[in-house]
Every structure is written in C-alpha cells, then in structure tokens.
Amino acid sequence: MDQKQFEDIVDKQNPKTPMFTNMLKAFLVGGIICTIGQLLVFFYIRFFSFTERTAANPTAATLVFIAMLLTGFGYYKKISQFAGAGSAVPITGFGNSVVSAAIEHKTEGYVLGVGGNMFKLAGSVIVFGVLSAFFVALIKTILVKIGVVSW
C-alpha cells in the first residue's frame, strides 16, 4: 500500500467537521460572554464612579475572576468543548489558561511550579500582544508625524 492510498483511506474515514455549527456555537457563546462584559460595564458606570473610558479595567478584572472560578470548579472546560473559540478568544480564555496552568503545577511547589509555569500557555499571548502593540504604536506615530491621522 503506498502513501497516497493510505491518505485516501484516512480522508474517507475522517469525520467531517461541521464548520457551520461550530461557528454558530462559537458566535453564540462568545457573544454571550461579551454581552455579560457590556452589562458589567454598565453596572460599573451606574453604581461606581467609573467613566466609559475607565470602566474597562474593572470589567476585565471581573471577567477574569469569573473565568477563574469556572476553571477552578471544572466548568470552563465543559463550556469550551461546546464553544471552542467562543470561550478561548475573549479575556476569559486568557484567565482560564493562566489559572489552569497554575492549578496543574501546584505539585511542583509555588515558586518553580506555579510561578514558573503559570504563563506556559498565556506567555505567547503576552509576547505577541506586546510586540504587535509596539508596532501598531510605531506605525501610528509615523502616520501622525506625516500628518495623515491625528491622535
């Protein structure tokens, strides 16, 4: 049996990924998480002295806290199995990756285990996030200097 024949058999037996259903599920769950975030923004503006600009901070913190609780109690992975990217992309996904890694490595101690491994998955998010923020800011600075856009 040559490689091509084998690949054909594998393709035939592979279950088809239901793209549309997956996208719909991700959209719904991601949308719900963002709606909850928006409700939190309104909550913080209404009952505390945050403005639109500053309310993003406690909202993000609250969402990460919720994700932390769900991860700790084992519910987040069930939501994820259903939603896929819908739960991984919002900031709750970031919270989940940090907390799950922290829980996992407790057996290796707090400093090397938890501290050293906590950002195992989230590390690349931070690295590439900071890197792209740098480049975007650089491009905007250049454009402002030329006079194409303003701050």
Binding site: N14, P15, K77, Q81, S100
Partner: peptide, 13 residues
C-alpha cells in the same frame, strides 16, 4: 497536552 482544566476543544478524532 494541556493542563487539565484548560479549555481546548477536542475534535471527534
């Protein structure tokens, strides 16, 4: 693979 509580979606395979 990933930490146990990490929400990575597993495919049918």
């Amino acid at each position: 693979r990933y930490p146990l509580e990490y929400g990575a979606q597993k495919p049918k395979t």
